[in-house]
Design a protein around this nucleic acid. Sequence first.
DNA 1: GTACTACCAGACAGACTTGTCTGAAAGTGA
DNA 2: TCACTTTCAGACAAGTCTGTCTGGTAGTAC
Lengths: 191, 191
Amino acid sequence: MGKPNARDRILTAAGQLFHHQGYSNVGINEIIKQADTAKASFYQHFRSKEALCEAWLQDVHDRSETSRADIIAATETSVEDRLITYYEHLSAFLTNSNFRGCPYTNTSAMVDTECTGVVHQIRMHKESLREFFVLLVQSGYPDGDTEILTKIGNQLFILYSGAATESQNLGDLWPVESAKQASLQLLSSIE
Amino acid sequence: MGKPNARDRILTAAGQLFHHQGYSNVGINEIIKQADTAKASFYQHFRSKEALCEAWLQDVHDRSETSRADIIAATETSVEDRLITYYEHLSAFLTNSNFRGCPYTNTSAMVDTECTGVVHQIRMHKESLREFFVLLVQSGYPDGDTEILTKIGNQLFILYSGAATESQNLGDLWPVESAKQASLQLLSSIE
DNA sequence: GTACTACCAGACAGACTTGTCTGAAAGTGA
DNA sequence: TCACTTTCAGACAAGTCTGTCTGGTAGTAC
């Protein structure tokens, strides 16, 4: 139960600050103060602020990946119910973070294309999220036409993204509910 | 064909820079350099950088508002065709701006809730965009149930937002096409 | 002991930030 | 010509930023 090592403390602090204030609005000094560590320790573990950003996004990705894998694996539950569960996760996440939205999308708005590492991290995550929705749909319709199921999966991905984005913009949960309903409607059109 | 006045030059320059680099990543000095004006002139027209941001968003809103009013008014064209037209606008806008996405959503990611003026501007715009989709749907189904038409309009709004967001994240237009198809599918479910 | 690693405190450089201020030039209307 | 407004150039204050560097402490392995 002791203090985690400096690297983990930095990653945790940076995660909170980046998410709540945005990458560009957080400085190294603020991060090391929150992490209760020294600047020299920071640069011992991370080449630069940008490298920290990459590590943070990687960390978030790894966590969310396992949570999605669980949902894909729960084939004893219907696609619809698993989708609803996933939207409940989103709801809780947004409420919990004061409607700060998707860390990847927010970061994408702040870095330019020269930050290739960060941009790559964002695209990897988004592609993986898209694939999750496709797999989810496929798992519910094993005999369905792959092309159609992929199309619907892509659409669910966009609805999910729009829900997170507009919940953040409006500071309200209704877009989440709305996107969930639309997703169910699109799913019901498969047969 | 002479030089526009300083205020307009500043607004134009700031618009480009804010959109392409993001509000937090653009400084006053860069703006006045691009606008070919002096710092004193800047502060004669704008109280602060934040006030400039508000003025910029207001400006973008006014322009897009009239373009949407035209689409609502074109009742001789079907809802589906007008929706497709609007998605073509989005496509062109994203291509044109190197996939920099929605200025409002991007700005929302960079300012915190204390910037009440900016946050208000963002919410006003988003609410007006939501209303556009509702009015569009209603214009095509004058005898439809208002509650259902509003629900569908809200869903189209979220799809549109998700398309812009993920196009930016992935640097690709496929989400726009995908959202358009999903919108048409949801519309077709009305009767 | 000795070597090694992890960590810490914080000064410092050099460049950047927003916003204020001084003082002057250019254009306009009467 | 006189008065007025707009614009200009840029110094300046007071603070921020990232990243480097020096010098030191604590704990561990052998």
